[in-house]
């Protein structure tokens, strides 16, 4: 058996989704914790420092490459699987079976598509200026100059439509995670009832807390809770 065979079987393809998914979940933890620095109420000093660290230190930069690979793999594989699975039933039902499963577990592709649109806009808002087109800088004294991403956030989230779009995306993320988190662990083989119950609970908690934290960021700027 080759690795290619291993990852191209129906179970293998799901393993790819699960591994990349869990990797992205980890990324969300890092991303959310760093961003939580905006609530330090120091005009963005700590937040900008943290962002500078992530942008200039070599380890996070290498991880970033992994992150992009993971995201693309997750997206491409996700779409391919959805299309493939749809093709397995050429003639559909008159009445669909909807009671046996949660709507969001059947709608991962739609939720994922909303998230993809979000990523594109989100990258345009922050990643592109920070990495390519440049942003205003902040002097933290002693010649320590960093990108003022805090300022970019403040500006970006003055637009009510942007805030609304971010909030909707966070809700999509919540539902995507509500299914994806525990599903990923099932796919990698957690079948022990005790652990599975634990992971499911953590998953639901994660699916609420992380998206809520993210959603509060644009809201906080828009309502001037942080300055």
């Amino acid at each position: 058996m080759t690795f290619k065979q291993m990852f191209t079987s129906s179970v293998g393809k799901k393993l790819v989704m699960a591994f990349t998914g869990i990797f992205l979940v980890l990324f969300l933890v890092v991303h959310a914790s760093l961003n939580a620095c905006i609530w330090a109420m120091d005009g963005g000093v700590i937040f900008n420092k943290a962002a500078h660290f992530m942008g200039s230190f070599v380890v996070p930069r290498i991880l970033e490459i992994g992150l992009f690979l993971g995201i693309f793999l997750h997206i491409i594989q996700g779409y391919m699987l959805t299309l493939e699975n749809r093709g397995k039933r050429k003639v559909g039902y008159e009445v669909n079976y909807s009671k046996g499963s949660k709507w969001y577990s059947r709608s991962m592709a739609i939720l994922g598509t909303i998230l993809l649109m979000f990523f594109i806009i989100h990258w345009k808002h922050f990643w592109v200026p920070s990495r390519i087109t440049g942003v205003a800088e902040m002097d933290l004294g002693n010649g320590f100059i960093v990108h003022n991403l805090f300022g970019v956030m403040q500006d970006t989230f003055q637009n009510v439509w942007v805030v609304l779009f971010y909030v909707i995306s966070c809700i999509s993320l919540g539902y995507h995670l509500a299914h994806g988190f525990q599903s990923a662990f099932k796919t990698i083989g957690v079948h022990n009832k005790r652990y599975h119950t634990m992971i499911s609970s953590i998953g639901y908690g994660f699916a609420i807390i992380i998206p809520l934290a993210f959603a509060l960021m644009p809201i906080s700027f828009y309502l001037h809770w942080v300055k």
């Binding site: 079987s9 129906s10 179970v11 393809k13 699975n85 009671k99 046996g100 499963s101 599903s183």
Partner: peptide, 17 residues
């Protein structure tokens, strides 16, 4: 896979029915 069945996305519909 050869028989052309789809892959599992853990929706739980199978168990419910």
């Amino acid at each position: 896979d050869k028989e052309g069945f789809g892959s599992c996305t853990n929706t739980g519909a199978c168990e419910a029915t």
